[in-house]
Design a protein around this nucleic acid. Structure first.
Length: 645
RNA sequence: GCCGGCGUAGCUCAGGGGUAGAGCAGCUGAUUCGUAAUCAGCAGGCCGUUGGUUCAAAUCCUACCGCCGGCUCCA
């Protein structure tokens, strides 16, 4: 079934296609294969290889197979678009996490209404089952070809590749610059859907033309596609913007302004629980609590470098002819606290913690629920230490972050970001700071990626990233090394030798922005917060009004025991009350009917629908308190163990 | 900031040049009920805001504001 293509007849006799080699090894698997793997390198089935090569088939179901399929789907989409919209130019079209996209330049942007026609045309191409054919062209030939086709973006890509030869793939009338590999023929694309259109800058540069991007996803069979689309629908139900309204946590208002959160009682109590834990954990880890004002003189922002480097993100105002800036960061007041008295090497490290509300003027198109706002509270701290303490301090912060991530059950990824174009400070300081961070990362043994040029303007940083329900990743914790501010503010301490020395500083947050963190946390738990976090922990439900008095007594006792409890004495059926408590995702319901009144007991019902045995109020409170404290007990235990080592 | 889509009752959504609609929620009444919706009645709207086109605009067009999906930027 694998016949040499005409252009391959000139190939040395002993060469076979990858498909033929696979067929000799395992005919059954070869039939299903969509590409071949040679020592981890992926090949087209049509690639010519040594017959003795040890190849393995890339089979549907493997992640790599899906990537090949989706990349091929992008090519098929590009062919469809070129047929439907003459004059369109194609840019790039890779496979991505959950699908693929292709960027186009056309006389008008594409809209969702264009998608059905493109899908139809793609289906035609799939039905024709056209082979993907690969060739290697001389770069000049490719350049001439795409210039003749008026495909300026492709010509630019060829120039950027700066190679003698480039890979070319064709299926039917569509020829594209591409590294491959691809599925053998268009018929192997089993199920696909175009999902959205969006603008995207050419090569991600906002100074270059905006292209029209079409997103889609593809699978080998329809069932998988359907499952994937269902999964996305499920994820949308976890969206914190939706849950935030349904669970009455927070709101946004046109009248107030974009990106400005209003916290409702249930959201505020959630915040408060988290913030109180932060306070207590910071105090236990050698931090002091401080607080600076919301506005500081512009002059001070000029001194710190914020005015030159961060101005476009700041709000300014004028009072009595003096210019002030609303703080976008908390560090300045902390610098002045440090400077308020003479510091000795014995005083260091000094760890100043502030739950600081900052305002940042974000561009209008970037706001996103709680995860990207214009006013937010950072669990911010500045650690001012001796150079020799730097690495240990960094590790201490990493432990702090790890403890909290484990408490909430988050997975995270780590990134080290290096010096950006727009920055202050000497090369030497940047080098020292970056190496301190990477040393600490190495010492921690955790995996991390390097993000070149993505540091803050004053220093490099380690970022901890979490993912939301729709797999968008958000930066939460960050540790930023800074040699510049101590310099600019002329911070000093007296060393053991009696000389005045310059300390170094770390900016760091654990959860990052409380707002963002609660957004991601809400999606993480799908709104069903664990007992210790739940805004309403217990709802007392009566079967009839004969239980009202007992319900009032119980509710009061629970509230007295610092339990967040409410009663529902409305003249409704129990089923209706249960349903509403369930929708609000209250962890415990307490059911009171004639039986409970008689026995002076209560029947707990869990959020998962399970009922516990009727019990006394005292028993319930004891059980509740134990369960509520458990996660925090574990957190403390771990922290203490580490300190002993 | 850029590209595209969208703003109708507290929420979810119909209506698309000629008097503003539904379900849920709310209010009132009846019902006293055991684990995800009891029944009936009532009320609720500057159709995001501004200009414009038209005899007539929720509906068509401008511009703003906001939201959604991306891009860029970032906690």
């Amino acid at each position: 079934m694998f016949i040499l293509a005409p252009e391959m007849t000139s190939a040395p006799q002993e060469m076979l296609t990858a498909g033929q080699v696979l067929a000799n090894q395992d005919p059954k698997a070869a039939r299903k294969a969509i590409a071949a793997r040679d020592n981890g390198r992926l090949l087209d089935l049509s690639a010519r290889v040594d017959p003795r090569a040890q190849l393995s088939p890339v089979l549907p179901g493997e992640p790599e197979a899906l990537e090949v399929l989706r990349h091929s789907a992008a090519h098929i989409m590009a062919e469809a678009v070129k047929e439907l919209f003459p004059g369109v130019k194609v840019a790039i079209g890779p496979a991505i996490e959950d699908g693929f996209y292709y960027d186009f330049d056309y006389e008008r942007p594409f809209t969702p209404e264009d998608l059905p026609a493109i899908e139809q045309k793609m289906a035609d191409i799939v039905k024709k089952n056209i082979a993907f054919e690969s060739e290697v062209w001389d770069s000049d030939k490719a350049r001439q070809h795409f210039t003749a086709q008026d495909e300026a973006y492709k010509v630019e890509l060829i120039d950027a590749l700066d190679a003698e030869e480039v890979g070319i793939y064709s299926q039917g009338g569509f020829t594209d610059l591409c590294r491959g590999p691809h599925i053998p023929s268009t018929g192997r694309l089993g199920a696909f859907k175009l999902t959205s259109v969006a603008g995207a800058y050419w090569r991600g540069d906002e100074k270059r033309p905006m292209l029209s991007r079409i997103y889609g996803t593809a699978f080998f069979d329809r069932k998988e596609l359907k499952q994937h689309l269902a999964l996305i629908e499920e994820a949308k139900k976890r969206d914190h913007r939706k849950l935030g309204r349904e669970l009455e946590l927070f709101s946004f208002h046109d009248e107030i302004g974009a990106g400005l959160v209003v916290w409702h009682p249930r959201g505020m109590i959630l915040r408060t629980v988290i913030e109180n834990l932060e306070r207590s954990e910071h105090l236990k880890r050698g931090y002091s609590m401080v607080q600076g004002p919301q506005i500081l003189k512009r002059e001070l922002w000029e001194r710190s470098g914020h005015f030159d480097n961060y101005r476009e993100n700041m709000y300014f105002t004028e009072v009595d002819e003096v210019a002030y800036g609303l703080k976008p960061m908390n560090c300045l007041a902390h610098m002045l606290i440090y400077k308020s008295k003479l510091r000795s090497y014995r005083d260091l490290p000094l760890r100043l913690f502030e739950l600081g509300l900052v305002h940042r003027h974000e561009k209008s198109g970037v706001m996103h629920g709680l995860t990207r706002v214009r006013a937010f509270t950072q669990d911010d701290a500045h650690l001012i230490c001796r150079p020799d303490q730097l690495e240990e301090e960094i590790l201490g912060v990493m432990d702090f972050v790890t403890d909290f991530m484990e408490l909430f059950g988050f997975e995270y990824s780590l990134e080290l970001s290096t010096r950006p174009d727009k920055s202050i400070g000497s090369d030497q300081d940047w080098e020292r700071a970056t190496s301190a961070l990477s040393k600490a990362l190495e010492a921690s043994g955790k995996a991390y990626e390097i993000n070149e040029g993505d540091g803050a303007f004053y220093g490099p940083k380690i970022d901890f990233k979490l993912t939301d329900a729709l797999k968008r990743s958000w930066q939460c914790a960050t540790i930023q090394c800074d040699f510049t501010l101590p310099e600019r503010f002329d911070l000093s301490y007296i060393g053991s030798d009696g000389d005045s020395k310059r300390p170094v500083m770390l900016h760091r947050v654990i959860l990052g922005s409380i707002e963002r963190f609660i957004g991601v946390l809400t999606e993480h738990y799908a709104g069903a917060f664990p007992l210790w976090l739940a805004p309403e922990q217990v709802r007392v439900l009566t079967v009839t009004e004969r239980a009202d008095a007992w319900a009032r007594e119980i509710t009061q006792a629970l509230v007295d025991a610092d339990i967040r409890a409410q009663s529902d004495l409305r003249n409704e059926k129990l089923g209706a009350k249960v349903r509403e408590a369930q929708l609000m995702k209250v962890p415990y319901m307490v059911i009171l009917g004639d039986r409970e009144v008689e026995e002076r007991q209560l029947t707990p019902r869990l959020r998962d629908g399970k009922n516990l045995q009727p019990q006394t109020l005292e028993e319930f409170i004891a059980m509740f308190k134990d369960e509520e404290a458990e996660p925090l007990r574990r957190l403390r235990q771990k922290a203490r163990q580490r300190c002993q080592i």
